[in-house]
Amino acid sequence: MGVKNLEQLTLGDLQFLMALERAGGITKAGETMNLSPSTASRTLKRIREILGDSCFLNVKDGLVATEYFFKIKPVIQDILERMQGLNPEGFSPEKCRRCFRISSMMAEVSRIIGGIVPTFLQQAPFASIHLAHHDNEFEQVLSGNVDFAILTRVGLPPDIHYLDLYPIERVVLFRKGHPLSKLGRPLKTYDLQMYDRASISTGRHNHWAGPDQSIFPFEKFRERTRLTTTRFNVVWEALEKTDLISICGYRAAEIAVKANDLEFLPLPSEIAEPNIWNSLIWGERAHQDEGCIWLRKIFAEWGQADTKRVQKLVNSQGYRH
């Protein structure tokens, strides 16, 4: 436990600690920073874990600061005063040296991050992005451990904010020279029912019926699934060497065909796709953060442009890659 652990806290965390001292209660402090009671509680829990001290003790009339808080209070005040002096006019991308933390394990995330990085670096040449995967991404964004997560927008908690990036257009991925590629006509559902599958798992429970259930309605759950993994390259290598097929998003398939000797085709037209989007999500802290607001605009602009790009390809008849 020491002052050096303050380096792991965000400016919002430091402001929240000062708000706690002034308000004397979690709910009141959260209100001053536009945080819901649950978000404020999670924020304090995370701060306590990082600093190794409760910082505030519960008493009859609210919260009282610990000796440790009074020890670090001058340091917190100094940091906040210096930051205000460095940037009195608010967030400035060209001066930003912040590392934005993003969590995702989607295969398509490389397409998304690769799409926004040029604009990101052009506008904020000293800032950076740290992309990783964390378990329970909802909890990660709500607690403030990450600024954003990128995932399929299903089953979101009520206090999660989100930005839809693009609707999911799914395709059938298989090796070059696969019998499906030689049909010379659009795929039919019975064509796919002849082949076993490889599946990429995200670790989340699906809240919607995917195309697998429509294609294989009479089989036992995953009876025809011969390979399940969270590693995308494992599936792609397996497809390249077998007659397995895999159903994935259009952008994931674009990445796969560049990495392996694969190709893809549209799902059969009789398979109804649900209206599901891949989205950027964030918690209340990031919702108020000026840097995160700026970065969301970059994601929004990329999402609009890439949606048009893919929709044009999907609408073209008989596309193949």
Rank of each mutant, 00 (worst) to 15 (best):
E108L: 06
N87G: 04
R101L: 13
L86V: 09
L80Y: 02
Q123P: 01
I116D: 00
G62S: 03
A65T: 00
S128T: 15
F100R: 03
M105H: 14
G90H: 13
S128K: 11
S103D: 02
A107I: 11
Q77R: 08
G114N: 09
R111E: 10
P88R: 07
C99P: 01
N58T: 12
S110N: 14
G85T: 11
M105F: 06
G85R: 14
I50S: 14
P118E: 09
I72P: 00
I129P: 10
M83Y: 06
Y68K: 08
V109L: 02
A127D: 02
C99W: 01
A107H: 11
E108C: 07
R97Y: 05
Q123I: 10
R97G: 04
I72V: 15
F56T: 00
K71D: 07
E89Y: 05
F91T: 13
E81R: 08
S128F: 07
H130Y: 09
Q77P: 00
E49Y: 04
C99M: 09
N58V: 07
N58K: 12
S110Y: 04
E108T: 05
E94P: 11
P74Y: 12
A107F: 11
E108W: 00
E49T: 08
L86Y: 08
E81K: 05
S92A: 04
V109S: 03
A124S: 11
Q84A: 10
I116M: 01
G85Y: 05
G62R: 05
T119K: 15
S54E: 13
V64N: 03
D53G: 12
I76F: 00
A127T: 08
C96D: 09
R111M: 14
I116G: 00
E49D: 13
C55K: 01
I112K: 10
A65R: 01
I76K: 02
E89W: 07
Q77N: 09
V75G: 03
C99Q: 10
F126N: 06
L80T: 03
K60M: 06
S92W: 10
T66S: 12
I50M: 02
R48T: 11
R97M: 11
D53H: 15
E89N: 11
I129Q: 13
F100W: 07
P125L: 06
I129L: 14
R111W: 12
I72T: 04
V59Q: 04
K95F: 10
T66H: 04
S103F: 02
F100M: 07
A65L: 00
G90D: 14
F70Q: 09
L63A: 08
F126D: 11
Y68Q: 01
S54C: 03
K73G: 01
T66N: 08
E49F: 03
Y68I: 02
I112R: 11
K71L: 12
F91W: 10
M106G: 13
F56I: 01
F100V: 13
A107K: 15
I76A: 01
I79L: 04
M106S: 10
I116N: 01
Q84S: 07
S128I: 12
G115N: 05
A127C: 10
I50E: 03
I129K: 04
I113K: 05
Q77W: 03
V117E: 14
A124T: 06
M106K: 06
